[in-house]
Structure formats: C-alpha cells, structure tokens
Simulated assay, not measured.
Amino acid sequence: MELDFPHHYEALGDRTLCVTPDHKFGTDAFLLSDFAAPRRKDLACDLGTGCGIIPMLWFRRPEDAPKLAFGVDIQQKAIAQLTASVEKNGLGGRLIPICADLKDLPPQLESGRFDLVTCNPPYKVEGGGILSEWESEKIARHETQCSLADVVAAAARLLKFGGRFCLCQRPERLCDVLTLLRQQGLEPKRVRFVQQRPGSAPWLFLCEGKKGAKPFLQVEAPLLIEGEDGFSEELLKIYGKR
C-alpha cells in the first residue's frame, strides 16, 4: 500500500510499524500490550488503535500471537498506517484494520464474540486541560470523540462471557474506571500501578475487567520504569530487549 503522506517504519523486533507525527506511540502502549497478554486461541480487538502499536506488539512472536485481532480507529490516516504495516509484515488475515466509531461498531465486529478487548483511551475528560492544535493529538488525549464510558460500553458489547477488557489510565481516574467497569458487567479483577522508581507516586495504572466474573480485585506489585542502571529489567523485557 502506497501512502500519500510523510511516514517512516520503526522496528518492533522482527516486525516494523508505520508511524507519523500524527500517529505514533509511547511507553504506555508497550505496558498495556504486555499486561493484556492475549492467548493463542483468542479473538482480540484494540479500540482507538492509532498506528496499531498494541496489536502489532502481539504479533512480534507469532507463536504467542492471538488467533485473530482487529485494530479499530475513527481516524482514516491511522487506519491507513496500520494497513500499510499489516501488508509490510505479511499479517493479512491475522490483523484486520477497521475505520469505525467505537460508538457505532460495524457488524464485522460481532457482539459477544471477543475474548479480549484493549484500549489506551484519552486520559483527559472533555473540557479538561489545554487542547492541542493538532486534531490527531486532540482525539488521542481528550474525550472529544468518545468518553471513557463509551469505551467501556463498547468493550462490554464486544466481549463474550468470561472475556477480558484491559486498559490503562491516569491514577486520578481510578474511581471512574472501576465504577464504569462494574456498571457494564465487567468486574474489576486486576490493577497494577506504574511508577517511575520505588517510592515515587504512580503516573499510570493498568486494569483488567472480566465479563460476568465474581468480585475479587487483585492489586499487583508496582511496575517500575527505572532500575539501578537505567530502565528496569522488567521494562527492558517488555520492550523486547531481554
């Protein structure tokens, strides 16, 4: 696929990913992809996928990749990038890009069918913070196109009984996330806070809700970004450097 806008490819192990200034990725995407840990038999879907970093990371090791994955985004440029990445990596039929609004998902994304849904959602509520002048950043960072409630509702529709929804969010929105998950029948089962170093306040948390599960929340050990000599061993492993 030929793209008519400036772009380049970044290495993800044996894979490559098409990125642009509009649709790129950060550490939180690596953390969420690892936290979600799809199984080989899973049917998975990443909502608000952007350049497709999260599902592409799942396919770094073909033996551990889900059976089939979808990457959904409302922005056509993001989906064009993911489509180019899929073609370049020979993942046609395994990773399917879809341009759609998660509030109005197409029939191809059948309700009650999915084992795993993920989302790295906008962190800022509508009207919170200074909006970026770039439309792509505005959509990614602020709830201008969808709210956290919309994201959780979409995940609940897609998941089968026992299916998992994994997301990341800022700590100040922990109560919002847990409340919305339970309201949609996605019982919070795991929470893990991400800290820059021991003793520092968390700047992110990872959370898993399970459809139809009984109440029991496991708070996992913090994930540390820094170690004694730079990045922590766990983060290096997540990055694929170990």
Rank of each mutant, 00 (worst) to 15 (best):
V72Q: 11
V72F: 00
D73I: 01
Q75V: 04
Q76S: 14
Q76W: 09
Q76L: 12
K77N: 10
K77S: 11
K77D: 14
K77E: 15
A78S: 13
I79M: 14
I79K: 09
I79R: 12
L82C: 11
L82F: 06
L82I: 12
T83P: 01
T83I: 09
A84T: 04
A84D: 06
V86C: 05
V86T: 06
V86H: 10
V86Y: 05
E87A: 15
E87Y: 06
E87S: 15
K88P: 10
N89W: 04
G90I: 13
G90K: 12
G90T: 12
L91V: 06
L91F: 11
G92S: 15
G92F: 00
G92E: 11
G92I: 11
L95S: 04
L95E: 09
I96H: 10
I96N: 09
I96S: 14
I96G: 13
P97Q: 14
C99G: 11
C99W: 12
A100L: 14
A100T: 13
D101V: 05
L102M: 15
L102Y: 09
K103S: 12
D104Q: 12
D104W: 07
L105H: 10
L105M: 14
L105G: 13
L105P: 11
P106F: 11
P107L: 08
P107G: 07
Q108T: 12
Q108P: 03
Q108F: 07
Q108I: 08
L109R: 05
L109S: 08
L109Y: 09
E110R: 15
G112M: 07
G112V: 06
G112R: 02
R113F: 05
R113P: 01
R113G: 06
R113H: 11
F114R: 04
F114C: 08
F114L: 07
D115P: 13
L116N: 02
L116D: 06
V117D: 00
V117M: 02
V117G: 03
V117H: 01
T118I: 03
C119A: 15
N120W: 00
P121W: 14
P121V: 03
P122Y: 03
Y123S: 02
K124P: 00
K124H: 09
V125N: 08
E126W: 03
E126V: 01
G127C: 05
G129V: 03
I130C: 06
I130Y: 02
S132K: 08
E133V: 04
W134L: 14
W134E: 15
W134F: 11
E135H: 02
S136I: 03
S136D: 15
S136L: 01
E137H: 10
E137Q: 14
K138H: 06
I139P: 00
I139V: 12
R141G: 02
R141V: 00
R141A: 00
R141W: 02
H142I: 04
H142V: 10
E143R: 08
E143W: 04
T144A: 13
T144M: 08
T144H: 02
Q145I: 08
Q145G: 00
Q145Y: 01
Q145M: 06
Q145K: 13
